[in-house]
Write a protein that binds this DNA or RNA. Structure first.
Lengths: 261, 261
DNA sequence: CGCGTTGTTGAAGAGCTTCAAATCTGGTGG
DNA sequence: CCACCAGATTTGAAGCTCTTCAACAACGCG
């Protein structure tokens, strides 16, 4: 419930808020409160009405959708990320469930306050529109990834993307359990296992959560990554500068949904 | 190039513009121009920089994505719909190609003007954010549809949705060629054909572009439509009233991408 | 150390794609 | 009006991909 000053600073640093005036920022974060959740907590179920904009400050959150006893992971979030922004803007019910994968700290901002401020402040509204645009494009990438690529190709591209995001080191570390990764990539855990095995001939060696890419060039020829599908994060998270391509955090959907790859 | 008064009225009626003041509307549509395209015209290729917000006034447009000689349909648009709003807001390049499926009339609004007005008018910015939220949610539904359902289930749900949208008549008319429908549903034309055949035991009879649903109840038990995936349009396009669930045009993605089902 | 979860592997089968060929359809020119 | 063509659709056969079920191994945690 108590909130460190540094927490608010990290929220202010989000693209969504980085350019808002101090007054507006105070208005939006006014009634906010911080909550701590253990791993495996369901924060929200599909269909629930949404009263808050969530901001993940620490830990990890999975967004998932379900139908007929089946579940699938739609996005994996790491700090600092917002989620369910679209539902908040429309004051609609959630289309995804959210649950913590680790012990997490989450800031909850009043949705009603957010909408009120949006109507008053064009710059903030514009920032929200930019954020949503980035999220939208993240999902377009996800749909293309899902419909145009087979399972092995999705995994190969995931590995290529991770390699870039982890600074081109040769042995990358999977940031989540394999069964979660499988669900994100749209396959069963068994199939992911076999997909890894079938990448052995491209120099991919798996030891637990560590994956060594001995022939990144060969893997990349198989993966055929495309800037129109894959969002290769800039290695350093420093200056993002221009929105020339688009703002990174939105682009990846780091704030709205890490979404595929 | 010349523009009927009624065309502008139809644009004004879009949720995106319905509540904007006449002055703001004039600013946004100021440098706009109307173009007519024959069927099969490529309006834009993936990766192109986007200078205009497109508004489909008449005809039909397909949005598609591609990778490695493969193509897939991401959305099918009918009048009156806007498209590539997200790219315009971010001043980014297009993630989808767009081409006309029929002779089409398309209004092109300056993206630069749109962004300028957004920064000046909080209400308009808010409307854009709402529109984008609806588009985002349309894509969330599309991803769930794609990842959670098999081909036959997607087709069954498509038919259930069409039946509702076509006023619950027993013989619905497919609004597009079957191969386009196949691509929208994420399958090959051959597979769509077989999927139709396998729905025969649920009372589905196909004659050309006409599909008769003799046992809609049985079909629906198979389809198991869900409000969290499928967007069953209100039969009458009259009063939409509340955004309680969400604005319909956004909800369906009628304006941003008709997107699956 | 024991136990439950997670990951791997094999076998069977369902689902989907590809290629090829036959059939149907709409539109064109004679 | 009819013959004809190109593209669209359907059907069959073969093969590949993916899922499911079952069993087993590996890991982490108390």
């Amino acid at each position: 419930m108590t909130m460190r000053e540094s927490d608010l600073d990290r929220v202010k640093a989000l693209p969504l808020f980085s350019k808002t005036s101090p007054e507006v920022f105070r208005d939006v974060t006014g009634g906010a409160f911080l909550q701590r959740f253990p791993a495996g907590t369901t924060l929200m179920m599909e269909g629930d009405t949404v009263d808050f904009l969530y901001v993940l400050l620490d830990g990890m959150v999975e967004l998932q959708g379900s139908w007929k006893e089946k579940e699938t992971t739609l996005a994996l979030l790491r700090p600092v990320s917002t989620f369910i922004l679209a539902a908040v803007v429309l004051d609609a019910d959630a289309l995804m469930s959210a649950r913590t994968l680790e012990r997490s700290e989450i800031l909850m901002l009043s949705g009603e306050a957010l909408r009120r401020v949006m109507r008053q402040d064009a710059d903030f509204s514009f920032a929200v529109a930019q954020e949503l645009s980035g999220c939208y494009r993240g999902l377009v990438r996800a749909v293309k990834n899902q419909k145009l690529r087979g399972g092995v190709e999705r995994l190969a591209n995931y590995l290529v993307t991770q390699r870039i995001r982890q600074d081109l080191i040769e042995t990358i570390v999977l940031p989540h359990e394999k069964r979660v990764l499988a669900s994100l990539l749209g396959m069963t855990p068994e199939n992911l296992s076999r997909a890894f095995a079938s990448l052995a001939k491209y120099g991919v060696v798996v030891r637990g959560g560590e994956v060594t890419l001995n022939r990144p060039d060969a893997l990349e020829r198989l993966a055929r990554p495309s800037p129109l599908i894959d969002n290769h994060m800039p290695p350093a998270d420093g200056v993002v500068g221009k929105a020339e391509s688009e703002r990174w955090s939105s682009a990846t959907g780091r704030s709205c949904g890490y979404v595929s790859s």
